[in-house]
Design a protein around this nucleic acid. Structure first.
Lengths: 251, 251
DNA sequence: CGACGGTTTGAGCACCTTCAAGGAATGTGG
DNA sequence: CCACATTCCTTGAAGGTGCTCAAACCGTCG
């Protein structure tokens, strides 16, 4: 498989890579299961615009804008947020390299949420129009996107469970564990990483005030299960964190 | 279009109707945009199992079960819930006639949530395997399902916004308004309807205790903006409810 | 260096939960 | 059809979690 070969030539996170070949790019997630061969590969590359870079705070898309591109995140992290009529903000998701953004716009043709870079990021933009055209000859593209969407729904269900049934302390413990798993699955350290979100964003994501985030992180540190300075976290005791998340006060 | 014609022959909610033709059935939502003609129609009917009936409290599918069918709800209502490891339950959604259930299982091949009938319901079961086969000759099926999924994601984002940023009173007002809109869009009364969920389920859906639901509903009634007896609700003042949902105490 | 955003910490209080108990409605079995 | 069991709903009282407001600290960036 051409793609696999290409992937092998550029597997490291830092290396430059074509949109299709890079394992850390969401387009890979979309294309590899299709079993693309040499010809198709050229096709696929034709729909992927050259990568773009956004700086911290820049917005990829806003609610109401015409849905013209799907964004495949190659590096860095992005938050997506929904905003109510009266201006309250809920962070709906937090995305890292290898994930696709903008899919929820398919139904209405407009983006429903806002996507903001949390640090300098690099994305591949995939034009929906050309993707739709391509899908005529390669229908399985929609199937792969359907699977990705369905995965998103599953994650959303999890977040709802978190927001609806857990106390602040449990939510935050769960959040840290989730980050840990996510980093681990991408071959980064599971116990030491950098929070790219501010306390305020974490609070918004988890449905609590930023002060509460601060206080609970401090409490975790007193307990010894984490060490935290600025945005650098070290998880000292994952079991204990899990126990807290499960509301089992002591291990 | 054959489908449209069929639909016209059986438009009333009470009339018996084929799975494909019935406007109140989710399969319709899936098939009509495909522009199915006579031949395709036969194809489509071939994948839809004869309707099944579930009674109140019966479970359509559970987390972990093999994903073999998509359920199109023809009548009645269904709740979907997710359950955490320690047994806490979050109602993730509430579905009425015309909606599809089970799509979030596509990614993993297993259902991720539990679907329970809230009253006697009638569903069409669509076998995934046969749907996948059919999609080979009619690829747009996946596109339509992708759109439906993306709509689901949008709704989930809304619920997260509700759970994360609103106070109990606002959430409940929003919930009633949402129900009202949903009924209105299906040509039922927008101001008078029956709650098919228990107070407990509503509470779980909105992330609050059932007692809180009771108390706030009573407060709404005192204020005069709703009348409620048992599960029969009448919305007397939708504007006022909207104002409450927006945290604008007085109209 | 000064300004600014992000973070921490404190105090008081509001909202909502928990626990408890009684009443209404629904369903079940005799 | 009635008696009983069960679930659902309501209401009260007490207490805690987490919010708001406020102020100070820190790190970063121009």
């Amino acid at each position: 498989m051409a793609v696999a070969k290409l992937a092998r030539t550029a597997p490291s996170p830092q290396a430059t890579c074509t949109p299709i070949s890079c394992k850390k790019c969401g387009v890979y997630q979309l294309c590899v299961p299709l079993g693309v061969d040499g010809t198709d590969l050229a096709l696929l590359e034709s729909i992927v615009k050259r990568k773009e870079v956004y700086k911290r705070g820049q917005v990829l898309f806003r609610p109401g804008e015409r849905f013209d591109c799907i964004y495949a995140l190659r590096s860095g992290s992005v938050k997506t947020s929904v905003i109510s009529a009266d201006g309250r903000v809920q962070i709906a998701g937090f995305h890292v390299a290898g994930e696709l953004l903008g899919l929820s716009a398919y139904a209405s043709g407009q983006y429903s949420c806002e996507a903001t870079a949390l640090e300098t990021i690099s994305v591949c933009k995939v034009e929906v129009e050309r993707l739709d055209q391509l899908a005529k000859t390669m229908p399985s593209i929609y199937f792969e996107m359907l699977k990705i969407s369905s995965e998103q729904i599953r994650r959303d269900e999890e977040l709802m469970l978190l927001l609806g049934t857990r106390r602040a302390e449990e939510r935050l413990a769960e959040y840290l564990i989730g980050l840990s798993r996510r980093f681990a699955s991408r071959n980064y350290s599971a116990t030491q990483f950098r929070l790219s979100m501010s306390r305020k964003d974490i609070g918004s994501y988890l449905g609590m005030a930023e002060e509460t985030v601060s206080r609970i992180l401090a409490r975790f540190q007193e307990d010894g299960c984490i060490s935290i300075a600025h945005r650098e976290v070290h998880l000292n005791d994952l079991d204990r964190l899990s126990a807290i998340a499960r509301n089992a006060g002591n291990v």
